[in-house]
Amino acid sequence: MKISNALKLGAAVAALGVALASTANADTWRYAFEEAMDEVQGKFAQKFKEEVEANSDHTIQLFPFGTLGESADIMEQAQAGILQFVDQSPGFTGALIPEAQVFFVPYLLPQDQEKLQSFFRESKAINELFPPLYADQGLELLTMFPEGEVCMTTQEPVHSPADLDEVKFRVMTNPLLVKSYEAFGATPTPLPTGEIYGALQTGIIQGQENPRFYLESMKMYEVTDVITCIGHNNFTTAVMANKDFYDGLADGDKEVVQNAIDVAFDYILDYQAELDEASFDKIKEAKPEIEINILSDEERQPFKDAAGQVEEAFIEMTGDTGQKILDQMKADLEATN
């Protein structure tokens, strides 16, 4: 471990004010996530906490975005056992588990909410193929769920890939997302979440993408002029436990955890499905002059054509395992039709 990482872990321990001994027997479990308490991951975490505490003697301590650092920091803390639970998008986990980047292959996930929810409930890829990959990294994959349609913000209107030419576009630190925006014609610029607003404000970047609700809650509309939805993705996130902690739980506690995950999963699917339109309504109210464009099928086609390059790049990055997961996801999605 690098010294800088060791210092981060040490600081996290101090911030939490706990010893690392016997976390498996602790009655206070710590759960960090990448968003604010009133955003989708925060709502899921609060429902999970409510269920665990209602059905056991355990308590859940929640740590929203920024409390313990950036996404990379909370993942390190989860792997080290400082945190018992962590919610992190495959967009950040992709460097650790390359196959998780499949969720960033453009136009793979459906826009139809019923099909999307059926996929996340029933997918063999999620429920059978991904857990061993997470386990190899010391993580127990508990669930994955969608957070809403991803849209772009830019300073100028975007109606084709040509409109993204030379646009410095912020992406997560995710190799496949870099490939996506290269294919879309932009100049991808990986940045941590906490730096997006300031980078847009100062002109370091001219564009970025996030779910609709996040554009509203983080006030991205204040530092941008145009929002464009091209239908290319729905933001996905994953809830994990430290594997040593999880494996050390009594069967009854494992049942409490899984039941709480199931209740929170059902709750969040309904919650996030209602967010998209409400979020845009709030943005329009706050900034009436904002330009919001939902591209037509004809306008989306060049972006869809570019998606083939990204799928090929995913296979190159992940080999046979990635191909197996991609094929299974396509089969799972076909089964939802």
Rank of each mutant, 00 (worst) to 15 (best):
T193H: 14
V263N: 01
E128A: 10
L191G: 04
V310A: 07
A12T: 15
L177M: 13
A36C: 09
F48S: 09
P175E: 05
V13F: 15
A54T: 01
M144L: 12
A125T: 04
N25H: 14
M317D: 15
K49C: 00
Y107D: 02
M144D: 02
Y214F: 06
H159F: 11
E122A: 09
G148N: 05
Q84E: 13
D253Q: 13
G148A: 08
T28Q: 11
A162I: 06
F235C: 12
L176F: 01
V102I: 14
T93S: 14
D244G: 12
H159W: 02
A260P: 01
K287Y: 06
D305F: 11
E299F: 08
I315C: 06
D136L: 12
V40P: 14
G308N: 15
I294Q: 14
T236A: 14
N210C: 08
F103L: 09
Q101L: 06
G91C: 05
S296W: 10
M329S: 01
Q155W: 02
Q46T: 00
I294S: 12
Y134H: 11
Q272M: 12
F104A: 07
L139P: 05
Q301N: 13
V171H: 01
A24H: 04
Q111M: 06
A260R: 02
P302T: 09
V150R: 11
T321G: 09
G248L: 04
G17W: 02
Q111K: 15
A36L: 11
G17M: 03
L326A: 07
G231F: 06
V226Y: 07
P188T: 00
L275W: 04
A331R: 06
L177S: 13
Y107G: 06
E122R: 13
A307E: 04
V52E: 03
E222G: 14
D27R: 15
